[in-house]
């Protein structure tokens, strides 16, 4: 469905909360009674964010073709008609500006080869990074106003403008995580190195983490 099923979500959350409270009576916090059960608006678009597996992606779907139309209305004035980005002349400041989103041609390399264009689609190791950003943070100054379908459409459009999906390929909670991102191998296979700074070795080298 196009919109997040708030009513069902609330029912499920309330039930879960009450079941949780009932089951955990023996272990209720000493501060019980403080605070209220969240309403759907309290969760906002953060309810839709997901990790590399995409298992927390919301229901909904989109294609790049649909995304192009939404993009023109909501994104183009800051990110350019062709997702090439908008920059102003030095000294001509404007809040209406944004980075290049499309036309990437390679993953970032240390030697920064000439002509290399690294957009977020070429830097992000998994699609959820793009989905999360659009869902929670965009459009600038109107963050949190998109529906889940719109976010899928725009994510598909961004991937399409970087040559990673076809124009009518349907992106939903199952297909989106499966898109092979060019920079996927730059991300560690597991998050174990982030779980223990001592093990990670940052402290040994001037406090500057450098994962190998």
């Amino acid at each position: 469905m196009p919109y997040f099923p708030f009513k069902q979500f609330v029912t499920v959350m309330v039930l879960a909360a009450s079941v949780g409270c009932g089951a955990a009576l023996a272990q209720t916090s000493p501060y019980s009674g403080v605070g209220a059960t969240p309403a759907p608006e309290d969760l906002g678009a953060l309810a839709w964010t997901a990790g590399p597996s995409g298992k927390e992606l919301p229901p909904g779907k989109g294609t790049a073709k649909q995304g192009a139309l939404i993009y023109m209305v909501k994104c183009a004035m800051c990110h350019g008609r062709d997702a090439e980005g908008v920059r102003w002349a030095p000294g001509a400041f404007s809040v209406i500006s944004g980075p290049r989103l499309g036309g990437g041609n390679g993953v970032p390399l240390f030697r920064r080869p000439a002509g290399r264009i690294t957009t977020m689609a070429y830097t992000a190791p998994f699609t959820a990074a793009i989905f999360n950003t659009i869902a929670v943070e965009m459009p600038l100054f109107r963050a949190g106003t998109l529906t889940s379908d719109e976010v899928y459409n725009l994510t598909a459009y961004m991937l399409f403008k970087n040559g990673l999906v076809k124009e009518d390929e349907v992106m939903d909670r199952d297909t989106l995580p499966k898109v092979q991102m060019p920079n996927r191998n730059a991300f560690p296979a597991t998050d174990e190195i982030y779980m223990d700074m001592q093990k990670r070795g940052c402290i040994q080298t001037f406090g500057m983490c450098r994962d190998r």
Partner: peptide, 21 residues
């Protein structure tokens, strides 16, 4: 699960490996 948003404060080294967090 770990995840990323738009601020991916990374650093890349001569072996092209990227440090993410």
């Amino acid at each position: 699960e770990v995840t990323l948003f738009h601020r991916m404060y990374t650093e890349q080294f001569p072996d092209n490996k990227i440090t993410w967090f």
